[in-house]
């Protein structure tokens, strides 16, 4: 691979743009396909760019037998993101766990004593009100949203914004009783019970988790399950 192509992929990922590296395994010719029609896209044979477009949509890297030989399409999709509302103890465990799983994590909490550098070393923090923060962060279909604050003042606006987004996962911390209250409040805000089925609450897989780290693990497992079931 030419260093120049490597730079282009790295640059695209920094800008959260999807690209597909097309490698001809017999002739070793390589092209970089970018979803939004970069200038050098013109030099890519139509047959190859059509295949790249399809595989990007399916988020699937694949070896394809073409008339000209074996071609590998390497999909570099936009980054997976996790937005955590509530800079609480569970978030302190979930944020590094999600980072390790390949997510760009942002912890959102207007309470600056919670969303502090000391409590979240190396994690992006956003101290805007949750609904504002979610709008600002342009939630897409590669984003998971988890509300953990346990405070309706913070969680409710976040869930309302999440329900209006394309987020692939929405989870809300809280007991069954808390969830019933949340459902009622969101219905009053105009979100039907059916729309709210998108929200996983109580959040996380039922593995009997007790400690903050275990609860974070159950949430990470559920987010993983959701993402994998969508791409399979």
């Amino acid at each position: 691979m030419r260093a120049e192509l490597l730079e282009k992929i790295i640059h695209a990922r920094k800008q959260a743009r999807a690209v597909v590296m097309i490698s001809h395994l017999d002739t070793h010719t390589q092209y970089l396909y970018s979803g939004n029609g970069e200038p050098d896209a013109d030099s890519i044979p139509e047959e190859l760019s059509a295949q790249a477009r399809l595989l990007l949509k399916e988020d699937r890297s694949q070896l394809v037998e073409t008339a000209g030989g074996q071609v590998f399409f390497h999909v570099f999709n936009t980054p997976l993101r996790m937005l955590i509302v509530g800079a609480v103890h569970i978030a302190q465990h979930l944020a590094p766990m999600a980072t390790m799983c390949g997510y760009d994590v942002t912890v959102i909490d207007p309470r600056k004593s919670f969303a502090s550098r000391e409590r979240f070393p190396g994690i992006s923090l956003n101290t805007a009100w949750p609904d504002e923060a979610l709008r600002e962060l342009a939630v897409d279909g590669r984003t998971a949203i988890v509300t953990l604050s346990h405070d309706p003042k913070l969680d409710d606006p976040a869930l309302a914004a999440a329900l209006q987004s394309d987020a692939f996962y929405i989870g809300a911390l809280g007991s069954r009783k808390t969830q019933a209250g949340r459902r009622q409040r969101l219905v009053e805000k105009g979100f039907s019970e059916e729309q709210q089925l998108r929200i996983s609450g109580p959040v996380g897989l039922d593995i009997g988790a007790r400690t903050p780290a275990e609860i974070a693990l159950s949430i990470m497992a559920q987010v993983t399950e959701k993402r994998c079931s969508e791409t399979d």
Binding site: A3, L6, E7, I9, I10, R13, K14, F76, T99, M100, G102
Partner: peptide, 18 residues
């Protein structure tokens, strides 16, 4: 600890530049 695609490509780029 983290093993992300950009870390791998970033490292390839860094080593090449060195």
């Amino acid at each position: 600890m983290q093993e992300r695609q950009e870390d791998i490509l970033g490292l390839a780029h860094k080593w090449h530049n060195e």
